[in-house]
Design a binder for these strands. Structure first.
Lengths: 345, 345
DNA sequence: AGCGTTGCCGGTAACGTTCTCGGAAGCTTA
DNA sequence: TAAGCTTCCGAGAACGTTACCGGCAACGCT
């Protein structure tokens, strides 16, 4: 009983044809109930597992979804969980690959999955990626492809994202309302859409309150804690230092916080701070950090639903872009005016 | 140019046989250099991608590794990154599935991957899992299977883990050296190996210093922050409350910290706290939390190496169990005696 | 009795590869 | 010049499955 049993073995033992066994397996209508029972019984006994490979080869689909993400931090792994949830439900298996924010790695992963392993892709692009040929190759094979979280105008594909501009706006407006005057922003890499959109929200809020943006207060830096730490130190060393900082990720907020603490400044009194993502850590540090919450799990689910849809109907869905609303969670780091109706967490 | 090009198309266009094309592709020796060049050129032009499915079907191996993990938290996602690293190097693609610590989900995932999609498994078992039949099915098909991080004696398979007992010992001894007298432990679920091993280390340390273990101070609770919070509140409500707590995960340490703060106790003066995993958050909270660091990335790499080895040579490797050493990182939450040679971080 | 239905089943091609075998040229050698 | 050796190539089976087509009974109907 070494080799796994095949449909052939069953046919031979039952003295019927493989076609009949195949039909019985799929519970086709035109097969006798007795035969069906016999096949079922034997396949149980032989511990028969249909060979997905052969099936996939035949019908040219694998029921696998390739998911490519830049990393598996809190937000993205939550999104992946959402994807997994509805994918499983719909009979799909997901293959997750991390690009580690590396362009090269992203290409390798794409190629690998493209080798007829998956039916399509759900992608969040790496921050390093500026050219999208490897993804366009997917579309040329007209496989369904959905982008999520980090969508980009350079990629014509159905996508789901959060309203980053609104998030940036909420954060900035909140800081303004709290009486902060010189509000800096730690934006991410310049070519990253989500970064620029959050920046746009920031600018929009400034405009609404007639505050002239100061380019010295707009810092582009890499998406991580250490860079944010350095950038914040520089900000705080300015003659006219900012009295509030909005960072477009919580990682960066943490970096900023460390720099602020090191400088001996108090939050929220001397300086206000708002992050983005609402990672658990924001409510654990002292002071707790205000942050823009995004519905990550939900976003993952929507991404997968879009994919399934694109899979089944093949109308052009490239224009579709679902947008989910983020929501600012106010905590200690930015609240220096007592709330009207105590929303603190 | 809709359907993807196959080896057949190339053969037809070049007026040669498919066998020759196949050979040329694989750079076989018995094919004319000119033919080889022609094939290469045309395959380039047609954007030919070999069909991995057909290949896998033929040679009965997929070069995929099924990785099943209970979740994708900091430690595990780091380990997965390690696995990915060496797997890619060796020409394997990993398929990650989360069981969400659910027994049922674990079974579903295993079945799914078992449907001839993968050549073998690298597994970290869910905390809910008490019976291992679904994994034994893997071994019956004699596919290679490696367990990592959470290894269990109920599963005869090569594995790699950290020396959990030593980690528990280091943490507890450190607390004792710091002068704490009543040291409690928040252990995990009772059937989880890593939980019991860390507990063993705790007991060993107590024994070494001739401290009688107190069963009231040994709490089994679920592997998460909320339970730890509740458990700690109960601990602190005792008549003779503990003056130190060792938790077997940082999540739990966070929960404990919250309860301690709420009670108005100071760390490390009134109470000491040590966690496990050395997650980044431990150095961000106030006070920073001492924690046992484990070489997660390295562990993932070792797991994958073991897998590759098991894949290629088929001697019995079930006895192999690699053990990596953890290392206590001392921070504020437990250090109330000035260090001899300032190791604080 | 002839006819069309219905219910059940078998044969075979096909999916895209690789692998084994055999064989046709062209060259060298005796 | 026949034998043998290279060098290169083609035919066909096989991997496990499904899909299409056709066939043969048995049955009911006119």
């Amino acid at each position: 009983m070494n080799k796994p049993a095949t449909i052939k073995d069953i046919a031979k033992q039952l003295n019927i044809s493989i076609s009949t066994v195949s039909r019985a397996m799929r519970n086709a209508p035109d097969v006798n109930a007795d035969t069906k029972r016999a096949v079922m019984a034997l396949s149980e006994e032989l511990n028969y597992q249909p060979n997905k490979l052969a099936l996939s080869l035949k019908q040219k689909q694998t029921h696998n979804i390739g998911v490519i993400v830049p990393n598996l931090d809190y937000v993205l792994s939550t999104m992946v969980k959402g994807i997994d949830e509805v994918a499983l439900e719909a009979g799909y298996t997901v293959m997750v690959c991390q690009s580690n924010e590396s362009f090269g790695r992203e290409i390798v992963n794409t190629r690998r999955l493209l080798d007829s392993l998956v039916d399509g892709f759900i992608i969040s692009v790496s921050s390093e990626t500026k050219v999208f040929d490897h993804f366009k190759k997917i579309q040329e094979k007209n496989m369904p492809m959905v982008v999520f979280d980090r969508v980009t105008p350079f990629l014509q594909a159905p996508g789901v994202k959060i309203d980053n501009e609104d998030g940036g706006f909420q954060a900035t407006e909140h800081l303004i309302e709290q009486g902060y005057k010189r509000i800096a922003i730690l934006a991410g890499p310049k070519n990253l859409g989500i970064s620029n959109q959050r920046l746009d929200g920031y600018l929009k809020a400034l405009k609404k309150y007639k505050i002239k943006p100061d380019s010295d207060l707009i810092i582009y830096c890499d998406f991580n804690q250490d860079y944010a730490y350095v950038a914040t130190k520089e900000l705080l060393a300015m003659k006219k230092r900012p009295d509030a900082i909005f960072t477009i990720s919580d990682r960066m907020a943490i970096g900023a916080m460390l720099a602020i603490k090191e400088k001996g400044l108090r939050m929220p009194q001397d300086i206000g701070l708002v992050g983005f993502n609402n990672e658990p850590v924001t409510s654990l540090v002292t002071p707790t950090i205000s942050s823009v919450d995004q519905p990550a799990f939900e976003l993952g689910k929507v991404a997968a639903k879009l994919f399934i849809e694109a899979m089944h109907h093949d109308e052009d869905m490239n224009h579709i872009e679902e947008v989910l609303k983020p929501k600012l969670i106010i905590r200690e780091s930015s609240q220096r005016i007592a709330p009207k109706n105590g929303r603190t967490k």
